[in-house]
Amino acid sequence: MTARTWLITGVSSGLGRRMTERLLADGDRVAGTVRDPDAVADLKSAYGDQLWPAELDVTDLPGVRRVVDEAFEELGRIDVVVNNAGYGLFGAAEELSDEQVRHEIDTNMTGSVQVARAALPHLREQGGGRIIQISTYGGQATHPGATLYHASKWGIEGFMESLAKEVAAFGIEVTIVEPGGARTGFRSGGARLAEPLAAYDGTPAAVVRGIRNAPPSPGDPAKMAAAIIESAGRTPAPRRLVLGSDSYRFMHDALTERLAELEAQKESAATTDSPAA
C-alpha cells in the first residue's frame, strides 16, 4: 500500500498515541500535535522525518490555523485529518465552574471545528481527503454527571454530519468514530472532575465521582486504533464507526428509545401543520 500522510491532534497519549505508533511503524508519515513536545521525543528519535511534531493547544484558534497551514505546506498532500484532541469533564451541571464549561466546549467541539475548517481549503485544493472525528458513544447516548462532555460530543457530531454533506462534492469524506470505554488513561489521568456539591450526594449524578477508580474498560485501544486506521482506506467512508460492545449497547438502547418516542408523536406532530400543507 502506498504510504499516506496523516494529521492527528493530540498524539501524546490515548488513541492518538496508539494510532501514531502504528502508522509510523507501517511507514506512513504523521503530523502530530501535542501540548508538550517532550511527550513524543521518543517517536521523533525513532522515526525521524516520518514524524512532524507541532506544539498546539486546540483552544488556540490562531495557532490551529497556523499549524494546519504549516503542516500542509511542509508535507504537501495530507490524506487524513484526525480530530482526536479532547478530554472528559464530569460532574453535575450545577457543580461545574464557568471556566470548566468554557474549556470543555472550546477543546472538544470548537477546537475540532476549527481544525476541520483550517484543513478544508487544502483538502479542496488537492482534490479530496478524509476527515476522521474521534467522538464517543456519548455523542448519541447520555449518562447523568456528564452533561458538558455529552454537549461537546453531540455538538461536534452534528457539525461533522452536516459537514460531510457539504464537502462530498469535493471528494472529501467524513467519518465519526464512536468508541466505548478503552483501556487508555482517559479515566485515570484524562478525566477532570467538578467540585462536588453536597446536594448531589447519593444522586445519579454523583456516580461519576468514582470514575477514576472504576473497573478497567472493555475496549482494547490497540484494536480500536487499528480499526480507525483501516476505516480510512474504505470507499465510501463509513459515516459512523462504532467501536466496542458497550458502545453498541448504549447507542442501540438510546436510539431505540428516541425512535419510540418519535413514532408515538407521529399523529400529534401533524396537528400543528398549516391547512395548506
Rank of each mutant, 00 (worst) to 15 (best):
F170R: 05
D98Y: 10
G210D: 10
T136C: 13
I172A: 04
A151R: 02
T136A: 12
P204S: 12
P204Q: 13
P121C: 11
G14E: 00
P204R: 06
V207F: 13
V174A: 05
I156L: 10
L75K: 09
E74A: 14
P218W: 00
E55D: 09
N83F: 01
A276W: 14
G158Q: 10
R192W: 12
V67R: 02
W154H: 14
I211D: 01
T33W: 03
T203D: 11
Y149E: 03
V11A: 01
Q100N: 08
N108C: 06
I105W: 06
V101Y: 11
Y137M: 14
A169L: 15
S45L: 15
E257I: 09
A31R: 02
E263G: 07
L197I: 14
A46V: 09
G111E: 02
T107I: 10
K266C: 10
D201H: 10
M251S: 04
T235R: 15
L123A: 05
I211H: 00
Q126N: 10
Q50R: 13
V64N: 05
T110M: 14
G127R: 06
P37K: 05
M109V: 15
L163D: 05
P221M: 12
L23S: 01
S231R: 02
A93Y: 09
R124D: 06
A194P: 03
E173R: 13
G233A: 11
G138T: 01
D49L: 08
L43W: 02
R183W: 01
T235D: 15
A277V: 15
T271C: 09
M19I: 00
L51M: 05
A92N: 14
T110V: 15
D36Y: 03
L241A: 06
V101K: 12
G138Y: 00
A54F: 04
D28A: 04
A39G: 05
N108S: 05
L56Y: 03
A226D: 08
V115T: 03
T59N: 07
G14L: 01
D106N: 11
S135P: 10
V208N: 02
E70A: 15
R35A: 10
G181Q: 00
A118E: 13
D106G: 04
K165I: 12
A260V: 07
P37C: 07
I229L: 10
P215R: 12
R249L: 12
R4T: 01
Y200N: 07
A31G: 07
A260D: 13
D26W: 08
A119P: 05
H103A: 08
A39M: 04
T110G: 02
L259W: 15
L123M: 11
A277F: 15
A119L: 08
E261N: 13
A198D: 15
A206Y: 04
V80Y: 02
T5C: 12
D57H: 04
G145N: 05
T33E: 00
P144I: 03
L120A: 04
E73I: 08
R239C: 08
T20F: 02
V64F: 01
E263P: 07
V64Y: 03
A31F: 01
L255F: 12
T2A: 15
E166I: 09
E230G: 07
N83K: 03
A118P: 08
F186V: 10
L241T: 01
A116V: 08
V58N: 02
W6K: 02
E104Y: 04
R212M: 12
S231E: 04
M109S: 09
I156S: 05
A206S: 13
G76V: 07
S268N: 06
L163S: 06
A39C: 09
